[in-house]
Design a binder for these strands. Structure first.
Length: 318
DNA sequence: AAATAATCCAACCGCGTCCAG
DNA sequence: TCTGGACGCGGTTGGATTATT
């Protein structure tokens, strides 16, 4: 008995997502939260399979995603983690909370592989005592990183078992890696709106009829997006007639936040905060550095600290 | 300016794992 | 313990874009 397809292949749309579909999906998730993907296409009327919806959300629309422009530190971290963990992109992504596994995988395949190949080729010519000492220090940082990871896991396990009633969303026992599909950092719907705004911006830019000036402030731009979306059909020829007033309402609300201060938009209490955002830390034991790194919005600083601790020795590679 | 090659990356596919019943 | 549904993961594809000839 074969495995049934995840969705009925007939009438299922494939290929790039349109802004309308994104808005529909985000509106639905805003209301019901992420998860139960099976029901998403039925409930939203999207002609997409559940997998496609989940993927779109995790890799593109999810709040808190940083795209493109990998920093040197991130690059180093990916390289080291890849050496340590292999092609376990989800595990690697769990140490870079703002990046998706897909993004990291793509970046590895398109940039880092080549870069490393070059470096290896270069180093083959310069194999001397120096390379011996480098390999030693590489072993050291690997051990340190492993120790760090082990320590972080332990700390998190303890934190989780210490107070099961303190409302970590989904207080499952720690299973060895951090679930990046449930971002632990503070997330807001606004961040998701930023993703959509960005997406719409690209969409509008691509449109020959667009007359948006780049000097317009973001609020105006956002309003323009709203109006643009409202007033015309998409490039794919689809109209927005299928969009309900509720969609537009939530779409409007997407842009009503102050994008320069997403922290302030926390007041915009919503489903994400219940489902997948940073847990209420009141009453928790003080967080250690790594726990902070794992939980905090300010993950970047933590990453830098960790990098300082673990990866410093190999910085000269770059 | 046109043709071709190279590169990028969003999305798909199929398999593995988890978990409720 | 078994089974099947749902979800997650890693590999791969293919269309779009950019660079080169």
């Amino acid at each position: 008995m074969g495995r049934p397809p995840c969705c009925d292949k007939i009438g299922v749309k494939k290929g790039p997502w349109t802004p309308e579909e994104d808005i529909t999906l985000v509106s639905h998730i805003q209301e019901y939260g992420p998860g139960n993907w099976r029901s998403v296409p039925t409930n939203t009327g999207l002609l997409r399979c559940s997998k496609s919806c989940r993927l779109r959300w995790t890799n593109y629309l999810r709040p808190g995603i940083k795209r493109g422009n990998f920093t040197d530190d991130e690059e180093k971290m990916i390289i080291h983690l890849q050496a340590l963990l292999g092609n376990r992109w989800a595990a690697i992504a769990s140490y870079l909370p703002q990046r998706t596994d897909n993004d990291i995988k793509n970046y590895w395949n398109t940039h880092l592989k080549k870069k490393l190949k070059k470096l290896e080729g270069h180093e083959e010519h310069n194999q001397d005592e120096d390379s011996v000492s480098k390999s030693i220090s590489k072993g050291q940082w690997e051990r340190r990183l492993q120790a760090d990871i082990h320590w972080a896991k332990q700390a998190l396990c303890e934190a989780l078992s210490h107070d099961k009633s303190t409302n970590l969303p989904d207080s499952k026992p720690f299973n060895g890696h951090f679930d990046h599909t449930r971002p632990v950092q503070t997330s807001t719907y606004a961040s998701s709106a930023e993703n959509i705004a960005r997406l719409l911006e690209n969409w509008v830019k691509k449109s020959p009829k667009s007359s948006l000036s780049s000097s317009e402030n973001s609020q105006n731009t956002q309003n323009s997006f709203t109006n643009t979306v409202r007033s015309r059909s998409s490039p794919s020829g689809q109209t927005l007639s299928a969009m309900t007033p509720e969609h537009f309402e939530s779409f409007d609300s997407l842009f009503s936040f102050n994008s320069s201060n997403s922290a302030a938009s926390l007041s915009e209490t919503n489903i994400f905060q219940d489902e997948e955002s940073k847990p209420n830390m009141e009453g928790h034991v003080p967080l250690s550095l790594l726990e902070k790194w794992l939980f905090d919005d300010g993950a970047v600083q933590g990453q830098e600290d960790l990098l300082d601790m673990s990866l410093g020795e190999t910085a000269e590679l770059f």
